[in-house]
Amino acid sequence: MPMAADDIAGMIQAAIPDAQIEIKDLAGDGNHYAAKVVSESFRGMSRVKQHQTVYAALGGRMGGVLHALQLTTALPN
């Protein structure tokens, strides 16, 4: 059961309220997305921690129903 871009964005927003989120559908199959998440809350976190925070927001769907999410995280400039 693939995921919709809005669902992905919604979950991340719920868990990281100040996040600015861009989602790109890479393949049109609901399974391959690229996401950029910018949030002040990432400050001081390692890249691994930042990505783990986003994965946690997706509640274990990462690697399951959501096969491929090319993720970039960043701090606001």
Partner: peptide
């Protein structure tokens, strides 16, 4: 970490492909 690939350097997890 929920996905593969996973890179380890000197025993430490570095990250996935991204």
């Amino acid at each position: 970490w929920p996905t593969i690939p996973q890179l380890y350097v000197k025993g430490e997890f570095v990250g996935g492909s991204d």
